[in-house]
Design a protein around this nucleic acid. Structure first.
Length: 458
RNA sequence: GCCCCGUUCGUCUAGAGGCCUAGGACGCCGGCUUCUCAUGCCGGUAGCACGGGUUCAAAUCCCGUACGGGGUACCA
């Protein structure tokens, strides 16, 4: 039996890291088993779905290197869901209900319980305005499944309310589409977030009802479920689009490499047994098993993501780094960026940091802090150092080697270290990329002006 | 309220009864390399939520407690 998994986003927002991780685990399993990855757009709710988001979601998936073998849109299969729901009505699996939402809520509160009280089960409500179709859930019994991640999960049917399968607008609810599609698309493994655990009994019931209504037909076995632990924020709550910065596109904008993102995401809720957690994706495809996924939620640690990203950036051939970094350099001369790229590659954690390392080369230096200035420039030998450097740089060859010879040569003569005062005078900071290459790229006059200005302040 | 679930260093994870005086990674701290920073290398810090069982032996199995999370829509 070939494995068929599906990733089923609703186009109600951009792809966020939680969904991306679900997609990734589906994909890893599909590739691990040589199975089929299905992308199913769950756009049954026309009011909330935004078609333009479908392409945004697909782009984010592609950016991450997650590809798919089949693509379906539930909006194309609308009639099937309606037919299935009508079948429920005919077979007695479902019934019409004309209770208003307020009435349901009031009665629930009065009874001290939550949910719908099956009020319309035997009222034979006629079709009409404000009428929904509800599923007749069993009054007793246990419904459960063996979850690949969580083990046996069971629900008492007594706590299952008669849930809505068709809205008053005539549009079936997602459970119906879900159950029908998983059945007809031959899905063998359902890998999704833990937040869907509670809807699983409904889907299982619906699937059985669909099968009941198709006597004589062959049906695939019930899929195996794997409910993934959630990805949480620092408060250990489910990542929310409103509270947290979670869109995959945002990470792309900040200069995270897709390989780093993908590699980091797969360490949340799953871990390689050999302790090698940064590696080519093929290694993880080979190792990945749904049964090895953890049960506990995982915190999305941006620091560790940055470390992964920095590792991936450093591992790039320099031409690739230049190509990846170019979209982030704003109005900096691409040739300048290319010559200084090796220095940046070693220091940058996110590609968006590139310009900040170059600001003093292409523009004004930072204003040094009082403390740095007095610590570095307050030394008694500094005026002499600066004077000599200025004098010799005025006539030196304008190459990194010659500039370096001047600066270090003065240091040797005066028996002191000379880089720091020169650096502070030029950049305004004690730290940064090596000095002489960028200096050689700058205008000699600008360099001398900055050194003279610093000398004047000593 | 009701239903479902979780708990190994601050964080992510390895661990499926003896290999665990619990391993790796991020972070943090220290050292070496270095006339800046960074990289690289070396070292350190810190954890089985708690209480009962079961067993010759428990981070691993069972029960309870505590804490935490998810769900409870005519969203998915």
């Amino acid at each position: 039996m070939t494995v068929r998994v599906r990733f089923s986003p609703a186009p109600t927002g951009y792809l966020h890291v939680g969904s991306a991780r679900s997609a990734l685990f589906n994909w890893l399993y599909a590739r691990h088993t040589n199975g089929t990855m299905v992308l199913r757009i769950e756009d049954t709710d026309a009011d909330r779905s935004r078609p333009e988001l479908i392409s945004a979601i697909c782009e984010s998936l592609q950016w991450l290197g997650i590809d798919w073998d089949e693509e379906h849109h539930q909006s194309d299969r609308f009639d099937r869901y309606v037919a299935a729901a009508n079948g429920f009505l005919e077979s007695g699996h479902a019934y019409r209900c004309d209770c208003t939402q307020d009435a349901v809520k009031e009665r629930a509160e009065a009874a001290g319980s939550a949910g719908y009280d099956s009020f319309c089960r035997d009222r034979n409500v006629a079709p009409g305005e404000g009428v929904v179709i509800r599923f007749r859930t069993p009054d007793e019994g246990i419904i459960g499944w063996d979850d690949l991640v969580r083990g046996r999960v069971e629900f008492d049917c007594a706590v299952l309310e008669d849930f809505i399968v068709v809205r008053s607008s005539g549009v079936p609810m997602f459970h119906v589409a879900n159950a029908l599609d998983d059945l007809e698309m031959n899905i063998t493994h359902v890998v999704r977030g833990e937040d869907l655990v509670n809807t699983t009994p409904r889907v299982l019931l619906l699937r059985q009802a669909i099968i009941d209504n198709r006597p004589g037909e062959e049906h695939p076995p019930t899929p195996l479920y794997a409910h993934l632990p959630l990805i949480v924020n620092e408060k250990r709550q489910k990542l929310s689009k409103r509270r947290d910065d979670v869109s995959v596109g945002d990470y792309r904008t900040k200069g995270f490499l897709p390989e780093a993102m993908r590699n980091y995401l797969l360490t949340l809720g799953w871990g390689p047994k050999d302790d090698v957690e940064i590696a080519p994706i093929e290694k993880f495809i080979a190792e990945f098993e749904l049964a090895d996924i953890n049960k506990a939620p995982a915190f999305f640690d941006i620091k560790k993501l940055e470390h992964f990203n920095a590792e991936y950036i450093r591992a790039l051939p320099v031409e690739s780094f230049v190509a990846a970094g170019t979209p982030f350099i704003a109005d900096i001369d691409p040739a300048l960026f290319a010559t200084l790229a090796p220095f940046l590659q070693e220091r940058v954690k996110r590609l968006e940091e590139i310009p900040s390392f170059l600001s003093w080369v292409v523009g004004d230096p930072d204003e040094p802090s009082e403390k740095d200035w007095s610590n570095v420039m307050g030394k008694p030998e500094v005026p002499a150092v600066l004077d000599l450097v200025i004098e010799r740089l005025a006539t030196a060859d304008w190459t990194p080697e010659a500039i370096g010879d001047v600066v270090f040569g003065v240091g040797t003569e005066l028996d002191t270290k000379t880089q720091l005062p020169v650096r502070l005078a030029l950049t305004g900071s004690r730290s940064g990329i090596p000095l002489f290459e960028p200096m050689a790229e700058m205008d000699r006059g600008v360099v001398l002006d900055r050194l003279r200005a610093a000398r004047a302040r000593t």
